[in-house]
Amino acid sequence: MVSHGGVSETSRQSAVRATQRHLTLADIPVGGKVIIESLPDRTAFGRRLMEIGLLPGNEATVMGRAPLRDPIQVCVLGALIAIRRSDALTVHVSPLSNGR
């Protein structure tokens, strides 16, 4: 998914760079507003997310997190949807605001 910069780069640095490049829905704090960049649209679940409105170019707001931070509640097209953290990790986003 991510091309490594140099041979000397540690895995930790590469992880940091990866998260910088690919901010996911799971990284967004409660109240944060984002634009959906991409999601795994070749999987049935990815398509389902698109069908209910979580598609690239659309706005989404993280509304809350269940106990133990999972699942997360997202507002998209005026509807509240809950998805698991592990699935939210596959949804790449760019932030609009950082929440409260």
């Binding site: 389902r48 509240l80 809950a82 998805i83």
Partner: peptide, 11 residues
Amino acid sequence: KGTPLLIEMPS
């Protein structure tokens, strides 16, 4: 394998 979850929360 863990199946994805999708819950719609109505008003």
